[in-house]
């Protein structure tokens, strides 16, 4: 009896601390989400301090659900996370398979490949949006300008000139625009997180059984069949890990969205929370609770999926 009580007693402080650590912020958020609480209001100064007498019930939730940006932000969050996952997993597998072969300079190539992962997200966003994606001064503008010049020159060339004069002038894509700012974020985050996927897939590829491959070669499997039937199933678990970790990380993207377009045409839930928090803490808290619910739904969904691949 008592030999059980002592370890429990010793664990208690840690458990209590953890509970406080997690429950207090969540409790505060819940509390704020049910009251009127704004930072600035000249007509109703009593709303500027949190108090139970400002009880609003589900009013904040209704306000958030009816605000024009909420459903857009949910959709956009899912779109951005889904696209990044798709991009990093496909690119990660391709690159990992390519550099798994031995070739001269492999060590250096590996270090270079990992390096994007060590760039700070904000720096990453500034670099991409100004140096690469900028329609005038960035690589994007320069490349399109170069292509246009080339076509101009070809139009006066003797034989093929006629063909090229049918071509239009190309326009560089502006990645800060309402329609494209989400793509800019997807591109830069995919670039930054592909190394993470490569790293994990590479480790897994190195533990692949070579005799299985030889058996498959004798069984008449082409390189593609070997990849499809041996390598891909072997990568099932690492793919699940990469998807899981990244989904949780990218639901909370913020810096990239802020730097690319200040949320113009491209909001996710954290960004919306940030906007509400400029003044309306009650609405921001309610959005926060929605974000927690969304994250849980996605986590449960992914856990199911991973569970299934592990069972197979």
């Amino acid at each position: 009896m008592s030999d059980r009580r002592i370890p429990r007693l010793l664990q208690t402080p840690a458990v209590v601390l953890l509970l406080i650590w997690m429950l207090i912020p969540l409790g505060m958020t819940l509390y704020f989400s049910f009251i009127r609480y704004v930072l600035n209001n000249l007509r109703r100064p009593e709303w500027t301090s949190p108090s139970l007498s400002n009880w609003r019930g589900v009013g904040n939730y209704e306000f958030v659900l009816n605000s024009k940006d909420f459903w857009f932000a949910v959709q956009n969050s899912l779109f951005i996370v889904g696209s990044i996952l798709f991009g990093t997993v496909i690119l990660g597998i391709l690159i990992a398979v390519l550099i798994n072969k031995t070739f001269p300079g492999r060590g250096i190539v590996r270090v270079l490949l990992i390096s994007p992962f060590f760039v700070m997200p904000a720096v990453n966003a500034v670099l991409w949006i100004n140096m690469i994606l900028d329609p005038v001064l960035g690589l994007n503008g320069l490349a399109v300008g170069g292509i246009n010049n080339l076509i101009d020159n070809l139009q006066t060339a003797p034989v093929v000139g006629g063909f090229f004069s049918l071509w239009p002038e190309f326009e560089p894509i502006s990645f800060r625009a309402t329609q494209t700012s989400a793509y800019a974020v997807i591109i830069m985050v995919t670039w930054q997180w592909t190394p993470f996927a490569v790293l994990i897939f590479m480790t897994s590829l190195q533990s692949e059984d070579q005799q299985q491959k030889e058996a498959a070669i004798l069984d008449g499997a082409s390189a593609w069949s070997q990849f499809r039937f041996l390598t891909l199933p072997h990568l099932g678990r690492p793919i699940a890990i990469v998807v899981m970790i990244q989904a949780i990380f990218h639901l909370s993207l913020y810096a990239e969205i802020e730097i690319v377009s200040r949320g113009n045409g491209n909001k996710n839930l954290p960004y919306l929370i940030g906007e509400f928090a400029n003044n309306n803490i009650g609405a921001a808290s309610a959005t926060g609770i929605f974000a927690v619910i969304l994250a849980n739904i996605i986590a449960i969904f992914l856990l199911r999926m991973i569970g299934k691949t592990l069972m197979e």
Partner: peptide, 30 residues
């Protein structure tokens, strides 16, 4: 694969993600 020989390895080299049926079917499927 064109030599018409079949090999049995010391470590069996079975395909771990496939059932026994699929393992045996694999060369025929290919």
């Amino acid at each position: 694969s064109k030599r018409g020989l079949a090999m049995v390895f010391q470590t069996y080299a079975l395909y771990p993600h496939m059932t026994v049926r699929k393992n045996i079917a694999f060369p025929m499927r290919m």
